[in-house]
Simulated scan of single mutants.
Amino acid sequence: MMRNFSPSRFLAVLVKEFIQMRRDRITFAMMIGLPIIQLLLFGYAINSDPRHLPTLVEVKDDGPLVRATLAGMATSTYFDFSGTVHGSAEGETALRRGDASFVVVIPDDFERDVVRGLSPEILIAADASDPSAISGAAAAMNGIVQGAIAQTLTGPLAAQAGGAPPFSVIIHRQYNPEGRTSTNIVPGLLAIILSMTMVMITAVAIVKETERGTMEMLISTPVRPFEVMLGKILPYVLVGYVQTFVFVTAAAILFAVPFEGAYLAFFIGFNLFILDNLALGFLISTAARNQMQAMQLSFFTILPSILLSGFMFPFAGMPGWAQALGTAVPATHFIRLVRKVMLKGAGVADVTVEFWALTIILVAITLIAMLRYRQTLD
């Protein structure tokens, strides 16, 4: 066979492949761009030890020891104090809506009870729906307390502090007290599954019609871009309904994931999210020339949904630029919504921010898709 080998024929095939690769710009861009994006995301954006977590405080006794403890918490960089609350109900609402990761409660007569040796307690209510997000901050509290005691207490109290601590910190892990990973991962997994299937199914189905020539029939009719888009998207909404029903049922039976919130909030949220992904699939179909490119572009959108949405890694641990990119990803807002509803017992009023975010993203994607949709074939 080597005797029949022709360098000129081999060179012709080689040149042809390079020309084909150059013409297939989407595939070439993914081969070069995807490793770079993965390197940047895993190297800079992914952080399993988040800092600067939003923290609220309810102070009922503002003595030197309290101030030293709060100052130590702020210095640790785990806690960012963003305001105060008045009463447990206000703190519970902040945790449920995601406005705070911690609520620190300093009880009445705290300093007096320390002096009297009554061992008072500081309560820290923590949003443990994502256990990995608060584990570092919780572990740092022992060192913070010891530093506050050494800095503040003097005389007989300092000698006493050498033994048992004069006060304790109780961390109340809410929404996932056992710290089960499945309780956090499974609700977020619904967003990833819907993203993978809805985007890819829509993009590939529309591109397939273009390849087969059936799209020409639609283009030759007086059907408007929005009408084509709506007609192509709505059938797959039913597919999303079936997937969601099967997923939620399996999550409850197999993993004992609770569903504490309002069904109406969940219903509105997953409908908006399905429409977001179907519109994104339609947008991809306007850029892809064949089914392979449609699948490649669909995969390209799935990567940010997994890495930048808070599904696998705490959203608060990412740098500001990565959080800004993640905010533009529909999965980010749906994961927040579904965790709030299923784990925290949120209602419609608690997830209005997520509703607005999903709606704005839907409008933006729809407008871009309709502008790119061609009434005539090139």
Rank of each mutant, 00 (worst) to 15 (best):
F5W: 15
S6E: 09
P7C: 03
R9L: 13
F10S: 04
L11A: 15
A12G: 08
L14I: 12
K16M: 11
R23V: 08
T27K: 13
M31K: 10
G33T: 06
I37W: 13
I37Y: 15
G43C: 09
I46S: 07
N47R: 12
N47Y: 10
P54Y: 02
E58N: 15
K60T: 05
P64R: 13
V66Y: 03
A68E: 13
S76H: 07
Y78W: 11
F79R: 03
G83A: 02
S88Y: 00
S88E: 13
G91H: 06
E92G: 07
R97N: 14
A100Q: 03
D108R: 13
R112C: 00
R116W: 10
G117E: 11
I122G: 04
A125H: 09
A128H: 04
D130V: 03
G136N: 09
A137F: 02
I144S: 07
A148R: 10
T152Y: 10
G155T: 06
P156L: 04
A158F: 12
A159R: 15
A159F: 04
H172P: 00
R173F: 05
E178T: 14
T181N: 08
T183N: 10
P187M: 00
I192V: 15
L194C: 07
S195N: 12
V204F: 00
A205D: 04
T210A: 11
T214S: 15
M217L: 14
I219N: 11
T221L: 13
P222N: 10
P225L: 07
V228C: 09
Y236T: 04
V237H: 07
L238K: 11
L238Y: 13
L238P: 02
V242Q: 02
V246S: 06
F247C: 06
P258H: 05
F259N: 01
F259V: 00
Y263F: 12
L264V: 15
F266T: 01
F267A: 13
L272A: 08
D276A: 13
N277I: 00
L278Q: 03
A279E: 00
I284A: 02
T286N: 14
Q291F: 00
F299W: 06
T301E: 07
I302C: 10
I302Y: 11
F315N: 04
F315R: 07
F315K: 06
A322V: 06
A324G: 01
H333S: 07
F334V: 01
A346D: 07
V351M: 06
E354Q: 14
F355G: 03
L358P: 05
A364E: 05
T366D: 05
T366I: 05
L367Q: 02
T376K: 11
